[in-house]
């Protein structure tokens, strides 16, 4: 029974969700630091791999040497330059993570959108598939699948596709939940009532309004993919030589962890820093898109 009518004030700058988020994000020092470190690692890895593509395959006679000017990260038991390996591995991990998160973004959004928008039988079927994938630990499925498709390890692309194919469930659930809520909102109902097609409603109204959830969780999928890939590689089921990943380097280095700790610390540390950066960026995005519910991950 409100007796007051509010009118939009003309000339007021309309703030979209996007511009608000960008403004919030720019004030988040933690997230900006995360991005800075992440970009630096990426550039260094790119430059190093381009300038010295054979760094990781050139054998030297320096076996298990501690870090020095010549080998900033030291060398491995078999005399390889660890820095080249770490950076190449980091680059490999990031490429895999990008493929995985792109797949998760596309499949997850599509499945979540269809399930959340159309509902009914389609929704039930899709969500049962998601449940099935959630019942068995992701790592377990990956172990089985990687054994089947690549007999215990494989090319980076195969691993990426495998992880990507299994990583979309979380995004799809969130997108579905978001769509279910948005569908009830007046502007969506109005749009449907005006005869807009499903495609138009989904692409023009629902996805733009769910963009925060989608972006944040795609970022978090990057972190999850790196963690999964490195774990698989550690178990000897991920990437196989001559390709290299950080998880593989940790596994190689663990035998000499007490005698030459740099073989453990550099790959493990780099892995940790990269994932930490991605998490911090994701958290910053979360806070930027939804300041009230910041840090409500998972």
């Amino acid at each position: 029974m409100s007796i007051f009518r509010k009118k939009g004030r003309s000339g007021e700058k309309i703030e979209t969700q996007w511009s608000t988020a960008m403004r919030n994000f720019r004030k988040d020092k933690m997230a900006l630091t995360g991005i800075a470190i992440f970009v630096i690692i990426l550039i260094v890895a790119l430059v190093q791999t381009m300038l010295n593509p054979k760094g990781w395959s050139t054998l030297t006679t320096d076996f298990a040497k501690p870090p020095s000017w010549h080998h900033p990260f030291g060398t491995t038991d078999s005399g390889l330059d660890l820095m080249s390996g770490c950076l190449k591995g980091a680059l490999q991990d990031l490429i895999i993570a990008v493929i995985v998160s792109t797949m998760a973004l596309v499949i997850g959004t599509a499945v979540g959108a269809v399930a959340g928008y159309f509902g009914g039988l389609l929704d039930s079927v899709l969500m049962r598939v998601v449940d099935l994938l959630l019942v068995v630990p992701l790592l377990t499925i990956l172990i089985v699948m990687s054994n089947i498709f690549s007999s215990g390890g494989g090319s980076p692309l195969a691993i990426a596709l495998l992880i990507g194919f299994l990583s979309w469930t979380y995004i799809s659930r969130l997108v579905r939940a978001e769509f279910l809520a948005l569908r009830e909102r007046p502007f969506v109902e109005a749009s449907i009532a005006l005869g807009a097609s499903s495609w138009r409603v989904i692409t023009r109204h629902l996805i733009p309004n769910a963009i925060g959830v989608i972006m944040v969780n795609t970022t978090l999928t990057v972190a999850g993919a790196i963690l999964l890939e490195s774990t698989l590689s550690y178990l000897g089921l991920g990437i196989v030589p001559p390709a290299v990943s950080l998880g593989m380097l940790v596994q190689d280095g663990q035998g000499s962890a007490t005698t030459s700790p740099w073989q453990f610390f550099f790959p493990a540390g780099l892995l940790l820093i990269i994932v930490l950066c991605v998490f911090v960026i994701g958290d910053g995005m979360q806070a930027a898109f939804d300041p009230r519910n910041a840090r409500r991950r998972k």
């Binding site: 998880g247 596994q251 453990f264 892995l271």
Partner: peptide, 16 residues
Amino acid sequence: FFLATPVFVTGLFLKF
């Protein structure tokens, strides 16, 4: 920090 640390890294670290 621990969210970003893979299980095997934590495990190996504690072990070694």
